[in-house]
Amino acid sequence: MRHIRTNYMNPYLAGFLLGLVLLASFVVSGRGLGASGAAKSVVISAVASSAPDYAEQSAFYADYFQGSNPMGSWLVFLAVGMIMGAFLSGAIANRLGFKTEHGPRISVRTRLLFALGGGLLFGLGAQFGRGCTSGSALSGMAVLSSGGLLTMMAIFGTGYLIAYFFRKLWT
């Protein structure tokens, strides 16, 4: 049977604290949390600065050419903070170290391949959903936005529907 480490924080306490962080984000900046937005900023500024001719043809990069610096955005700073916070937590709990987690029935190579594919899908989906699990689903739930809750149900609904077919990956 799988061995689950127990030195993690109580999930409800962690959730409560995360809720307070989210609340603080609303109180201070009037917006929720988000992680995919920073990735979008990275892509936009990287592409638009290295291949401006290509980027100019797409409305997706329009904001970049309107003078706003995507790397100076709120979400990018949030992501930088996340990196610092996660490193801090990992260091305190002694969980730092390079490794690859994979299910017992697949190789490291397969795991990395699927991780790449999953990331690709998530990056694509987060654009349609206007935010990822944190930006759209979690923050949307806090303000009771229809779109946010819809996205959340679609994420988890799809996840449960297809989980059986990919069980080899994890169990």
Binding site: G118, G119, G125, I155
Partner: peptide, 15 residues
């Protein structure tokens, strides 16, 4: 977006 992210979650294991 949600459906695509659902696939991404199960395949990639992260969000």
């Amino acid at each position: 977006g949600g459906v695509i992210m659902g696939f991404g979650f199960v395949l990639g294991g992260y969000c």
